[in-house]
Design a protein around this nucleic acid. Structure first.
Lengths: 339, 339
DNA sequence: GTGAAAGCGCTAACAA
DNA sequence: TTGTTAGCGCTTTCAC
């Protein structure tokens, strides 16, 4: 597959031992500085590239990490990846990316491959399927190997583990309180897929906030959606066809809210006057909605950064598992601003 | 870093040679089927996981690929990744993801790491910096090693290479023709960053289409933007403050068009009646714009799929470099539909 | 200042 | 049917 130059090849050229070449290339002080230079120049010339695989084998450390995500096309996930990349770039690690597509089988398969490739650590946002069915042995196997595992967004059912999350509960609470403060009386919720931690936490924050304000959740006002815009079309119609229509919607993410605003426009219902809206994730296009969409930022990029930093700090000293919980930020825009 | 079980460990347990274990685990027919089973069960029990690194060293093949992208948070790039993943999943390859952030230095650094890790192939969408300054030696070094390199979106300056692209020129031509057909007289263009192939091709298609219709590009009607929505705000205002305002805008991507529609709304200009708009990429939110945004789909996901398939077909037999050029598809929605 | 040899985990050719 | 040995590319310990 590759006709690359090895240390042996160079040794032959210089009629010396491979170890000499190795030392020269690694700037070992014992080697004559002249020799060092000559060898280094020659290596550069012939395009010598150290074979890291052999070192991985030798040192039991591959300088490679695994990242398993349920999907990658949403802004949240790709931002996590971007943040992680930035931190890891400086540290010399390479990232293996695996998209599980929410499937437990695929997730397991990827974990096997990553283990076989001896990654030095694993970042994982669990597939919905694994989470739903409490399938965790594949991850336990990783933990048993004393391989650092850092959970992202979705926690592990089992033993305590390192985690980086945004406080979805708090974010949802803030969003709901904001709608209450704006005078909204009947706040609906576009509820994410059940079984997913993110959906549950956001619903709980929503629910608890209503109760803290002396109200309670009305079943009619809860509609289930996926994380896609399409899935919110019918859900929003259902809400607006109720006898007692909602005067506000809190959506599980921005995509569903943008779709909701689309439906409301179609129905001639004004936002925020008749229905105020708050989303979640603060995607870049939220500010350019009609009207601009209020949203809870979960600091997606920082999740990736913190996860990478957590790994780097962990690998030196074994510490107790910690949870880094990032503060969500409510960004208020027109879609929820009632005067 | 990991306390994993090796074939030697198992051999000790069974008081036999490592090669026997190796054969048993690989279902070698020479080994007693009973013995095979016992060994396989034991291996499973103790969580044995083959160390692929040693095989990579032995076979000169790591079953690992590199993917270098200038960014990852846009729908186009993350869809490419997703498409690629799907194909590679079935073939046992693992994907190393590298985000160059359009920087030549970072790109070079990543290429070094990927080479050091002996990836079996490389997918690359070149950084703007490398492209602009025609910096290609880092990539030539890869090609010289006879390592399969597949270019995505942005071509290589130098030698002929495998490529998967969408025909941006044709897409832009189609979009412009559509605007002409809709009766638009003064079609403006939100031009992407100069030096990027994608921007250039789209501009050329735009220009040639106008000329094919007996018109020519007016400098006033060309405004430069980045790929972000923000960058289109001022650009659109500039256009609409012209004495001879445009009655159509063709934007380099959907984000800038959504921002443009936002500005037009603010200025009380109606879309598509006063200004018709067509974007590029067909991001999922395009259909939920106000109004729904016409756009040229570049089949992002399929780019990833085709690139992965191209690699898989190439690795068996060395063939001449080919270019896979995907047909862009014009999706007409309200933003450009004049009756 | 340099060389020889062992070994990381695994497989395959050769022997028995 | 199973064992022995060599070797993938590199570093490191121990000699010299």
């Amino acid at each position: 597959m590759n006709n690359s130059v090895s240390i042996k090849d160079i040794a032959k050229k210089f009629k010396c031992a491979p170890s000499t070449i190795s030392r020269a290339l690694n700037d070992h002080p014992a080697i004559n500085i002249e020799t060092r230079k000559t060898i280094q120049e020659y290596a550069l010339k012939v395009g010598y590239q150290k074979n890291t695989l052999s070192l991985s084998l030798l040192n039991n450390c591959s300088m490679t990490l695994g990242l398993i995500l349920p999907s990658i096309t949403h802004y949240h996930e790709s931002s996590i990846l971007e943040g992680m990349e930035e931190i890891l770039l400086k540290s010399g690690y390479l990232l293996n990316i695996c998209v599980s597509n929410e499937s437990h089988t695929i997730e397991k398969e990827y974990i096997d491959r990553l283990l076989a490739n001896r990654v030095d650590g694993l970042f994982i946002s669990m597939a919905q399927e694994s989470y739903d069915q409490q399938l965790g042995e594949h991850i336990d196997r990783v933990i048993q190997r004393a391989l650092p595992v850092i959970f992202i967004d979705r926690p592990n059912h089992g033993v305590a583990s390192d985690r980086v999350v945004t406080d979805d509960y708090q974010g949802a609470f803030m969003a709901t309180q904001h709608l209450v403060d704006m005078g909204c009386q009947r706040i609906a919720h576009l509820h994410g897929p059940s079984g997913i931690s993110v959906s549950q936490q956001r619903f709980l924050g929503f629910q608890d906030c209503l109760e803290a304000n002396g109200r309670k959740v009305e079943e009619d006002l809860i509609q289930y959606v996926h994380f896609s815009a399409e899935s919110a079309i019918q859900a929003t119609r259902n809400l607006m066809n109720l006898e007692h229509k909602p005067d506000a919607i809190f959506g599980v993410n921005d995509e569903v809210c943008i779709a909701a605003m689309f439906v409301l426009r179609e129905m001639g219902i004004s936002v925020p006057q008749e229905v105020a809206i708050v989303g979640f994730d603060d995607i870049p296009l939220a500010s350019f909605g009609h009207p601009p969409l209020s949203s809870v930022s979960r600091q997606s990029r920082r999740i990736g950064e913190e996860a990478a930093k957590l790994f780097l700090s962990k690998k030196d000293q074994k510490l107790d598992p910690i949870t880094i919980s990032l503060e969500p930020k409510l960004i208020i825009r027109e879609s929820s601003l009632r005067s």
